[in-house]
Amino acid sequence: MSFLEIEDVRKSFGHNEVLKGVTLNVERHEVVCLIGASGSGKSTLLRCVNQLEQVNGGEIHIDGDTVTGAGVDLNKLRRDVGIVFQSYNLFPHMSVLENVMLAPTRVVGISKEEAKEKAMTLLTSVGMQDKSSAYPDMLSGGQQQRVAIVRALAMEPRVMLLDEITAALDPELVGDVLEIVRELAHGGLTMLLATHEMGFAREVASQVCFLDSGSICENGPPEQIFDNPTEPRTQQFLSRVVKSGRL
């Protein structure tokens, strides 16, 4: 049994069927990369996993427990599932430190001192200790994204969802953020991430999943997907990516 099991998940917005039966398993300590054109449903799939969107069909299991459907304690589920968004979504009225401390103090209920100590340790590990009292709008995109990662990590999630977290960054800032993800992967954190950085996906992923208009078109180890894709649509997508200079 896998740690995270996505079983035949369907999701529609009105008449627009965005996920058309997606099945995907993520083992403990595994890093799975979702690739696919814009609008193929990557974000929607990630948002279904932590129940920001409710599925219309299928089931999702985390560590054997069904997390879709009625009666699930969403607040508890979301403690275990961290998510980082493309647009950072830091809280603009709180300092960096307050952003990181908010959930541990309010949700887990640990003391302010303990939360602060932990937050500072995490901020130091991403090189943001000097900015702990800064407000988000004083930071660069790369710095904000690093804080957003730390904010999610402070809850000690068992799985992290990363939704194109470098897509909004200036090219020279992408490296720092990817470096953090690389370290998390080496540390054994289970991750499911949507990305346009194919080189990075090839490097860290144990499994790459090509999503095409709401269904998984091809799925396998990175060497297979990037070097010998069997599906014509995967080949097409990758050749477009190569042409735009992103591989």
């Binding site: 932590n50 607040n75 961290g82 998510i83 968004f85 979504n89 830091l90 908010l102 999610a152």
Partner: peptide
């Protein structure tokens, strides 16, 4: 809405999200 999504996905309840964010 992304503010609310960020707060909720950290495990904050609706009431906590309202009050803190």
């Amino acid at each position: 809405p992304s503010q609310s999504a960020a707060a909720r996905s950290l495990g904050l309840s609706y009431a906590q999200t309202l009050r803190a964010v």
